[in-house]
Every structure is written in C-alpha cells, then in structure tokens.
C-alpha cells in the first residue's frame, strides 16, 4: 500500500513538471503597494531576455503569500532588529546611523542604486561596504562581518524602506569595467560540474532541476528570508552557495569578484521592484 501511494505520488509529481513556468500573479504588499515582478528587460539584455522576472513568481502559493503581508513575512523581524541598530549609538564618535541620516525611512531610494561608484574612494561599493565604511570612518565602530546577522538586519532595513522602487544600478561610466568583469563571471562555467550562472538562470529558468524550480536568479529581493535555513541570506552568501554547488572553489563574500558579479546581476534586474526582505524556499 505504501508502495502504491509512493507510485501515485510520483505520478502526481511528474505531472506537475510539465507546467513549471512562473505563475501569473501580482505581488501586492500589505494590500496597498503593487510591486513590479515582471517587466521588459533592460536594454543591455537585448537579444538575451525579453522579460525579467522576480524569483517570487517561481515560488509556491504559500511562500508567495508570506511575502505579501509584513505580519506574515518572517524577514520583517530582522528589519525590526535592523531598526534597533539604526538608532543605537556605537563607537568612539558617540553616533548612531540616525545621528547623521535621520529616520531609516529617509534612506528610501538608496538600496535601488547599489552597488554604485564611490567617487571619494574611487571604487565600486556594495551597500554592505558602505555600511561598514560608515561604521569605521564616521562612527569609530568595528566593521560587521560581511554576511553576518547584524549586517543582514541592516541591509534588510535599508531594502524594506525602498520596497516598490525600481532597481536602477548604473552600468556605464566609472563602473563599466567592474560591470564587464561581473558579466564575464556570470557566463564563466565554474567547477567540476562546469556550470555558469547563465546555464541555469538564463537558459533554464522555469525548468526543474531535480526538485528545484529554477528562477532567473534575480537579486531584487535580497536579503531574502529562506524557509530552508530560517534566516536572512545575503546576496554574496547566496552567490557562494551557488558556486559551491558547481563543485568549484568559491569566491569570498565581499571579494572584488562578488562585488562585480553583484553589480552585473543587479543590473539584469533593473526595472524590477526592490522586494527585500523577500521570502523564498
């Protein structure tokens, strides 16, 4: 009987594979803000993709529902913790983030344009790099671990106040060489399995790889709360996991390679709404 049930279950499962396309659904946040989860691809993807889609469209009904209401979104607990950090005085200068920046809601519009070029430093910076620079230079406080909890809470807070705004990273001017490097990494087939980001997320989004439904690998929803590990996951931690799964020697979170890859992948989602903290499986 158990075998029969197993066979029936396998039968049911195999029939669901046929229609593994992204769902036709609208992401409305707290019954008031409609987020853009699919839109025309940015010009630099011409000939590659017509449309860019949020990973939200590739997840199951229950997972999607969790993200529509802040009371149901487990990631919002970490946004609250980020808010506490925002207002906490730390370091030798006796300042909090709020001392210079005001309320966290005043940071709306920051997340969508990162990574971006910092003129004074002459480098491309991720949001994490900028937060740590503020901590060290302005507050006289210790840096946070790049993919650690405090940092993820802060990036979740900064993403949350920009939800609904379109991702809009620059790809030209001073960032162009970094963007080019990121693009090269995106198409590089790494590891013993020789898989690039593009192999799965450009050529096969919508398809199943074993039990996983492949999305476009967009990062507009980061940091993302994953049901799999019940915590916030930063972009570089996710990149690392993906590269590891190609049986490769990974790059390090915060490395110049991952900064470049983040800029490039973010630019593939230009036009999608900032969703962080999103909910994924």
């Amino acid at each position: 009987m158990r075998n029969l049930t197993g066979a029936l279950l396998a039968g049911l499962l195999s029939t669901t594979f046929v229609s593994a396309d992204p769902v036709d659904d609208k992401l409305v946040l707290n019954e008031e803000t409609t987020l853009v989860t699919r839109t025309a691809a940015p010009a630099h993807l011409s000939g590659v993709l017509d449309e860019v889609m949020s990973g939200w469209l590739f997840r199951g009904t229950e997972t999607r529902a969790m993200q529509t209401d802040d009371f149901d979104n487990p990631g919002m607990i970490f946004v609250d913790k980020g808010e506490d950090s925002w207002n906490a005085v730390e370091g030798t200068e006796g300042k909090s983030c709020a001392s210079c920046h005001g309320g966290s809601e005043d940071m709306a519009g920051v997340r969508p344009v990162y990574p971006k070029f910092n003129e004074a430093a002459g480098e491309v910076r991720t949001l994490e790099m900028q937060v740590n620079d503020c901590r060290e230079t302005q507050m006289g406080a210790d840096k946070w671990k790049y993919t650690g909890g405090s940092m993820a809470n802060m990036t979740a807070l900064l993403a949350s106040v920009s939800r609904g705004m379109p991702v809009n990273v620059a790809i030209d001017g001073p960032v162009q060489s970094t963007w080019d490097e990121g693009k090269e990494l995106y198409y590089a087939r790494t590891g013993q399995l020789e898989l690039s980001c593009a192999n799965c997320h450009e050529e096969n989004f919508g398809n199943m790889i074993r039990a996983d439904h492949l999305s476009q690998g967009q990062i507009n929803g980061f940091p993302t709360y994953r049901l799999k590990n019940t915590k916030l996951n930063s972009v570089h931690a996710r990149f690392k996991g993906c590269v590891r799964d190609t049986r490769a020697e990974t790059y390090k979170p915060g490395s110049s390679e991952f900064v470049a890859l983040e800029l490039y992948v973010a630019s593939r989602g230009n036009g999608l709404s900032v969703e962080g903290p999103s909910v994924r499986n």
Binding site: E194, R244, A248
Partner: peptide
C-alpha cells in the same frame, strides 16, 4: 557535466565544500 574527466576545469573544488 563530464563524468569521467579530471582536467581542464575552472576553479575546481573539493566536492561540495567550496
């Protein structure tokens, strides 16, 4: 993936350890 090959990889790793 090539199941019986040991050379020519980009950043080959030690299984799934990273």
């Amino acid at each position: 993936p090539s199941f019986y090959r040991t050379d020519g990889f980009l950043r080959p790793g030690n299984a799934y350890t990273g």
